[in-house]
């Protein structure tokens, strides 16, 4: 079970916003390797981030499978160039996927540079988060939820 608390989310969101500003990108997405969206920034209105997250995670999983077949640990990055939009995909701390969508307002070089910095920041945050979670266990939402609540959720017919 992965858990993200409000203050952790705020810290991650701030890093993602900063990357969006610094890289001049269109949008940034942070996704876990199972395809769940963690944070996003930029021009995401009209963008189906749920589908994008799932497909990107599938893509990274398939690429990871190819790496394994070739006895590589992983391919850390991917870049796809479109007519209008480009996409840069990288893996942070072996478990989070960082996606940058960008157009001609910036360059691949700048994106790569800023991604490298943001990756380090995110990695540090993830390490802090896992330390915090080991030291202090916060109350889980599932402490409030009863079996009857779960039953009720499915008793609509």
């Amino acid at each position: 079970m992965e858990v993200l608390y409000e203050e952790q989310y705020q810290a991650i969101q701030a890093t993602v916003e900063r990357l969006y500003q610094d890289s001049n990108a269109m949008a940034i997405l942070l996704i876990d390797k199972n395809g769940q969206e963690i944070a996003s920034a930029g021009e995401i209105e009209g963008l189906d981030t749920t589908s994008l997250s799932s497909l990107t995670a599938g893509n990274v999983a398939a690429t990871g499978g190819i790496a394994k077949l070739l006895a590589e640990k992983e391919f850390t990055g991917q870049f796809h160039e479109g007519e209008h939009t480009n996409i840069h995909i990288s893996i942070v701390a072996q478990r989070i996927i960082l996606v940058v969508l960008f157009d001609q307002r910036t360059s691949l070089g700048l994106v790569r540079l800023r991604v490298r910095k943001a990756s380090k920041d995110i990695q540090t945050l993830l390490e802090e988060m896992s330390q915090q979670q080991q030291q202090q266990s916060k109350p889980s939402i599932f402490e409030e939820i009863t079996d009857a609540d779960i039953d009720n959720l499915f008793n609509d017919d």
Binding site: M1, L4, Y9
Partner: peptide
């Protein structure tokens, strides 16, 4: 793996 987000209040 399930992902519980307290910020967006989603399971």
């Amino acid at each position: 793996m399930s992902f519980i987000n307290y910020s967006s209040r989603e399971i």
